Structures are given as structure tokens and as C-alpha cells.
Simulated assay, not measured.
Amino acid sequence: MDHGPALPGAASLVLVSGVLHLDPAPAVFEAMLDGWSRQQRSRFLRADATIKPRLEVVRRFARFSNQYPWQWTPGELEAFMSSMSVAVSTARSYQNALRLFCDYITDARYGWPSECLERFGASPQQVLHEWNSVLHNVEFEGRTSRRPLSYDEVQALFDAADGRVEEIRERRRKGAAAAQRDAVLLKTVYAFGLRRQEAQGLDLVDLRSNPKAKAFGRIGGLFVRHGKSSRGSTAKRRTVLTVPEFDWIVELVEHYLAEVRPILVPGDHPAFWVTERRGRMSLRSINDAFEHARAAAGIDPELDLHSLRHSYVTHLVEFDYPERFVQEQVGHSYASTTAIYTGVSDDYRNRLLQRSLTAPGFDLWEPVS
């Protein structure tokens, strides 16, 4: 029997020849998943971040339909999607995973159509088409409540984080050093426009001096090694420069490194943000730091840590930094993505309007009576 060429993930490579299964259907399905994993690994896609979530979506659809891939129909897919209450972007990611899996098992080069036809009398089909797929019609599909924090909200958030440190000290409780760490962490996220995983992944060696801004010393920028990947690629890297408007972060970070971090007794741990147990802060802990400060400051609970990144982009724009500079600072591939993050204030727009109105040669147009 011709199983097709021996491409990574081909049926001939993952099915054990000469072995008879009492129940062949589950064995073939598992072999399909194994083969798809191999095919994706051959393209250097990341196992935990990309391959594993895709496999779980396929398994979830199989459990829902109670059918195997060679039995799936578009109707089953539509019922599956209708059963879920998820964001549009999440629904699209599910559909993308299922579409890619169906592309794989229907590609004759991998041998699955002929294998299934011989074993089960049916071949798999592509169950997603333009009529049952989520279309990408708008740039932004996130929560409409997510927005940049105003300057007053940013200040209130930071005051609340600092206030927690003082409260712990006054009560003579443990945790003052951790609270100081959290306060500096939140300010660093804002001052460099970091994503949550980017902040978590920072190491001491990621500090960068800037020969064009010697006044900032060793905190002339941060080398971000855990940026958001795209299309299954490895994490993107970038250097985020310290800008003069956020130069206050230099003294805070220096104080944290010299006075606060040593109290946590990190030993030789490389992480920038360490716990009292000498480990790297978790993503959940970073979220908690923001949520505690947000609650204490009385800020809208719909706003999350990522809103600080939105604030960073917005405030750089209001400081009149060029669009391309802002885009590079936050690591966006496209200017349109940066524009989505921007929500300039009315004061800024009025300043732009006033600047135009007072520009030389500007005359108000008067209609002819």
C-alpha cells in the first residue's frame, strides 16, 4: 500500500506496520495527532506555545462530536462553534487550528486520505469554508472596555502600590520588600511599555546602557528577549530605550537593584523580578500586583495590566514621538497595530488644534454671503 512520500508527519512514519489493533480508529487518530506534531516541529514551531494548544483544540472537537476526523462534517464544526461562548479572536484561533489540522490530514502527500479510505471506507475532508468561518473585518476585536489609563489614573495606581508598602511597614508585617518590588515592577511595565511575559522574562543581563544617553547609566534601555511571537515563530527581540519623559524610572530601578532585591536573597538567580522563595515571579503574581493596586486606587476593574502598555503608547504619541519610533519601542510589526493602542486625550487633540489655528499663514475660511 502506498502511504505517500516520507514527509515529516506522513502516515507511513507514524503508523506501525504489521500491527493489528482491536480498535484501530483511536490508534489512527492518535497517529494523526502525532504526525501533525512532527510536521509542525519540522517547521520549528514551539511545542508549548503553538503545537500543544492546537492539539488540544482538535481533541476537544473530537470529544464534542464523538467522531473521528474521517467522519467530521461542516455541520459538526458549526455545532461545535455554536456551543461555545468565547471572544471572536478565540473562536478564530480555534477555527485556525482545526483548519490547519484538516489541511494536513486531507493532503495526499501525507497519506492519510488513502489510509482512512482503506481502513474505514471514508476519507477526511476540510470542514471549514468561507460560510462557517469567522471573518476578520475589523482591526481590533478585544474588549471595548480596554483602554489606556489617564495620567491621573496612572498616578493613582502608583500611589496605591507605594501606599501598600507603607501600610505593611506600619503594621510591621512581612512582605514590605515584595510590595516594593511590585511597585517598581508596575512602574517598569509602564515606563517601557512591556507585555506581561516580557516583564516576567527580564533578567539582570537585559539592562542596556545607551551611549547617546549616558545620564541614564546602565538603565539606558531594556533588552526584551521574550516578545510576542507571530505565525508560530520564535519570540521577537527588541531593545526598548529609556526616554527622557520616563527618566524617573532610572532611580527607582537602581534603588530596587541595590536595596530591595538583595533583601529577597535571590542568590545567583538571573531573574530581574524574584520572589521571597528565590524564584522568578509568575505571570499570575504579576497580575496580582496590578489588581491589588487597581483595587486600592479605585480604578475601573475592567482595566488590566496590558492597559499600562496602551498608556505607554498613547503617552509617547502625546509627547510627539514619531510614529515609527513608537512602533519600534513596543515591537509592533505594523503601524496599524500601534494605532489601535493609541487613545489620545482631549487635551492633546485640543493642543494640536490650537497649534494649527495659530500656525503662520492660517486663515479662517469665511463663507460668501
Rank of each mutant, 00 (worst) to 15 (best):
69 P>R: 05
115 E>Q: 13
70 W>A: 00
102 C>Q: 04
107 D>C: 00
93 S>I: 11
106 T>L: 01
112 W>S: 02
75 G>A: 09
123 S>A: 15
98 L>H: 03
64 F>N: 11
96 N>F: 12
64 F>D: 04
108 A>L: 04
80 F>H: 05
96 N>H: 07
127 V>K: 05
113 P>T: 08
100 L>D: 03
95 Q>L: 09
107 D>Y: 09
98 L>R: 02
132 N>R: 14
110 Y>N: 03
117 L>T: 09
77 L>F: 15
125 Q>H: 08
100 L>I: 00
124 P>D: 01
102 C>W: 01
101 F>P: 04
70 W>N: 00
91 A>Y: 01
99 R>F: 08
111 G>C: 06
89 S>H: 10
78 E>K: 13
63 R>P: 00
63 R>W: 09
109 R>V: 09
67 Q>Y: 03
76 E>V: 09
120 F>Y: 10
130 E>K: 15
84 M>G: 01
123 S>Y: 01
79 A>V: 08
69 P>E: 10
76 E>K: 05
97 A>N: 08
89 S>K: 15
125 Q>E: 11
102 C>I: 00
71 Q>M: 11
131 W>N: 07
98 L>G: 03
93 S>V: 07
99 R>W: 13
107 D>W: 06
122 A>H: 12
114 S>K: 14
90 T>K: 12
88 V>Y: 11
81 M>D: 07
121 G>D: 04
65 S>T: 15
85 S>C: 12
70 W>M: 00
131 W>R: 14
103 D>V: 01
87 A>F: 06
101 F>D: 02
62 A>F: 08
131 W>D: 08
127 V>H: 06
102 C>F: 00
100 L>E: 04
92 R>F: 12
70 W>R: 00
68 Y>N: 02
122 A>S: 11
97 A>W: 13
92 R>G: 10
87 A>V: 05
118 E>R: 13
68 Y>L: 00
83 S>E: 11
104 Y>V: 05
102 C>K: 03
